[in-house]
């Protein structure tokens, strides 16, 4: 079994714990794919967090805009005619990613291993600074696909399960 195959249950567990706790949603693995740096995700936001220690890498999550708006409305208890500000939605996405990355590294690394994360960076459209090819774990949340993107520096790192 490759590192990537061994990483998949870790990612799925972290995604499930995060989405269940924050939004009461189930996460179902919906396959994986290899994408190139020019891949596009219409009507979506991406959020990137750099892993600073013990490995140097990053993770990116891509979520549809309407799904994040719905989650933000729920968290802030908004009623029908209220719409969240974009800054609230992006803050929500950053918090979601921060929580999920913390869970991924806590599950993946040994108990005594220290890790450090950078601050979430959120954007839309083409994702900057990507290598030519990266791995995408595709998950289904309700009817929505969510993509977790991993670069080589993550799944080939010495800390990835062998």
């Amino acid at each position: 079994m490759s590192s990537l195959e061994k990483l998949q249950p870790i990612f799925l567990q972290a995604l499930t714990e995060t989405f269940e706790n924050l939004f009461f949603e189930d996460v179902v693995l919906h396959g994986s794919s290899w994408l190139d740096k020019d891949s596009e995700f219409p009507e979506s936001w991406w959020v990137r967090i750099d892993v600073l220690e013990p490995l140097r890498s990053f993770l990116i999550l891509v979520v549809r805009k309407d799904l994040m708006v719905r989650y933000t409305e729920a968290i802030f208890g908004m009623i029908e005619d209220q719409m969240p500000e974009e800054s609230q939605v992006l803050d929500n996405l950053g918090e979601l990613m921060n929580t999920m990355c913390g869970r991924i590294l806590a599950i993946m690394l040994s108990e005594n291993c220290t890790f450090k994360l950078g601050l979430p960076v959120v954007g839309e459209g083409k994702i900057p600074d990507l290598a030519d090819k990266y791995f995408s774990l595709n998950c289904l949340i309700g009817d929505n696909l969510v993509f977790l993107l991993l670069p080589e520096s993550f799944y080939f790192s010495e800390f990835a399960p062998k």
Binding site: G102, E111, N112
Partner: peptide, 9 residues
């Protein structure tokens, strides 16, 4: 409350 499970911290 933290997302960093870090023994030193």
């Amino acid at each position: 409350i933290s997302s960093l499970a870090n023994p030193a911290m």
